[in-house]
Write a protein that binds this DNA or RNA. Structure first.
Lengths: 338, 338
DNA sequence: ATGAAAGCGCTAACAT
DNA sequence: ATGTTAGCGCTTTCAT
């Protein structure tokens, strides 16, 4: 099978076999210049036969472009960067461009190291992927290639960032709960010093106010764990037994909350409705009831970041922070009750 | 800050500024040849000043090496490939080599496309990462660069594969349960047609036999979900109320099992001990009791794969399938009782 | 100790 | 329609 035996010979070998010059081979293989169709075919056949593959390095050295983007993540390739990466890859067009993946492990030294390494590899651009929405310091100043910040925006408003609409997600959750007849709504969420928690709480409080409703208790800050879902619900029920809906800061919290509500004999969604955030299926669909959840649309964030990069490479940078809408995925836990 | 203004000028600019030839610059910058120390320093200073960075493409074109490896994953960068990638990156030495990450999405067409693309980019080698231990067909024949299969081994025993010791993991779990005094042990696991489930069941049965114990019920196959943990335990207790330990095929199953045992008034670990697989913290540490779990050591698998690749590049390929040991992480759910 | 020049694989401008 | 050649940025002989 010549199909799979890549000998990687170089354009000269092809030229020799086809009985033409290297220039002709180049034209034939790239569809440039004017060649007799027969020549083109003969050259193509020869290339196939010697198992020729283009040499990316040689091409890059001339064009100055590598069709490669560097992705630096602070997330140890975690739960957030994965869907984002998928989106980036989609935008970059199925293998036309490739991604160098670098895990900075949240270490500024490693990060700088990767920036230099990537620039030395002549990447066409860099995408910095965060694991939270807290703004981050820029990768550097006057970098010779465009940089896009995904999820965690840059602190410099002139940079191009793409991030999630945390406030809007909270609003959607509240509006849905209210529309389905809930009025006594609480918000149990994660660490107070995370921008995600703060923004969601802000959105929650604003949405409640605009609905003319009082939140049930203050915002219940805790941690991002299933365990806090249990403890939060325990505290909540002790003080506000009349609660009829809880907007949770994550699906893990919501899952814990669901189990704890069950222990207290509260039916979901009839007695208490539940909505989480992340739309992370191991937790939303892990058990009954399946959990309603705010999807941050991370893949879309990645795709937009990829598109922004392509646009910048095209000479049309898009400075400023772009905000991607959230979606509310409604499942059993916030169902019916009109 | 010249530190951060990368102008990327090329060796000629450095030469001009330092008042030497390009050859000398090359030697100075690479520490080769014989140069007066003063010259070396002068050149280095000049390079710094013009913000010079090496041009990887130009280097590759000469050396034939790119210090780049292609990683093709079938996992949509999922839960398994992430820790593996981390290990690969560790082995490849903190940014000396970089990884192209390609998501084949389990589509053979996409996979072949990526193979060609990677070869065209002159990668030094390829690592194929799977999301399960089921053997997979090789990437291709006679590829011009070494290929290592991680997690999912190649069906060709001549290829170099690194995979997990699923059987051994099950054995460790059983041995630990027996050593701490449990005798009535059941195995609730995932899909019967997954190699992981089959191998773990095999290991479980073998370990039980060698301990002179009868498994409680047949192996309880189901799905890889928390929900199956609930249903499996329900079925198990209905038929075998005397069970005193359960080895679960995943942490999600174990978490579901834990909740269901609680509903039935069985204390963990006193009445029933529990061990999962994956050591996936959102589930093992999400709530009480923290779950004991078999860690497949995916990072180690990645690291070994990276090392095997380096070894192959060094002219010392390691054909055959290498099996990486599992570790049992003991937590509350399989604690005490002598 | 340093410089000059060839050449890596390829493309494009310029001959023919 | 095809061939010839210069040159991309760098390393490496080979001269000096």
């Amino acid at each position: 099978m010549s199909e799979n035996s890549f000998r990687n010979s170089g354009i000269a070998a092809v030229a020799a076999l086809a009985g033409v010059s290297t220039g002709t081979v180049s034209k034939a293989l790239n569809g440039t210049g004017q060649l007799r169709e027969s020549t083109r075919l003969r050259v193509r056949a020869a290339a196939e036969e010697v198992g020729w593959l283009p040499n990316g390095a040689a091409r890059s050295i001339r064009s100055g472009r590598t069709y490669t983007v560097g992705v630096i993540t602070t997330d140890s390739y975690g739960r957030f960067s994965i869907p984002i990466l998928r989106g980036v890859e989609d935008a970059l067009g199925l293998g036309e461009m490739l991604c160098f993946l670098c895990d900075s492990r949240d270490d500024p030294i490693r990060e700088q190291h990767y920036v230099r390494t990537l620039l030395a590899r002549q990447v066409d651009g860099i995408i910095a992927v965060g694991r939270k929405v807290d703004p981050r310091t820029p990768l550097g100043e006057n970098l010779p290639v465009p940089v896009i910040y995904a999820f965690a925006p840059s602190t410099d408003p002139q940079d191009c960032s793409v991030t999630a609409d945390e406030r809007g997600g909270a609003r959607r959750a509240v509006d849905h709960l209210v529309k389905t007849g809930r009025r006594r709504i609480a918000h149990i969420t994660g660490l107070e010093n995370h921008a995600s928690a703060a923004l969601r709480a802000e959105g929650f409080l604003a949405a409640m106010a605009s609905q003319g409703l009082e939140p049930v208790g203050d915002v219940w800050y805790g941690s991002w764990s299933e365990e806090w879902g249990h403890n939060g619900v325990r505290a909540l029920l002790a003080n506000h037994p009349d609660v009829d809906a809880i907007f949770c800061g994550s699906d893990q919290i919501a899952r814990g909350a669901a189990y704890e509500l069950e222990r207290h004999g509260r039916a979901i969604p009839d007695d208490v409705a539940l909505i989480g955030v992340d739309n992370w299926s191991p937790f939303t669909d892990g058990y009954r009831p399946h959990l309603s959840s705010v999807d941050l649309n991370l893949s879309t964030i990645g795709r937009r970041a990829g598109e922004a990069l392509l646009s910048a490479l095209d000479g049309a940078p898009r400075p400023g922070t772009q905000i991607v809408d959230c979606d509310l995925i409604v499942r059993e836990s916030s169902g019916p009750r009109g």
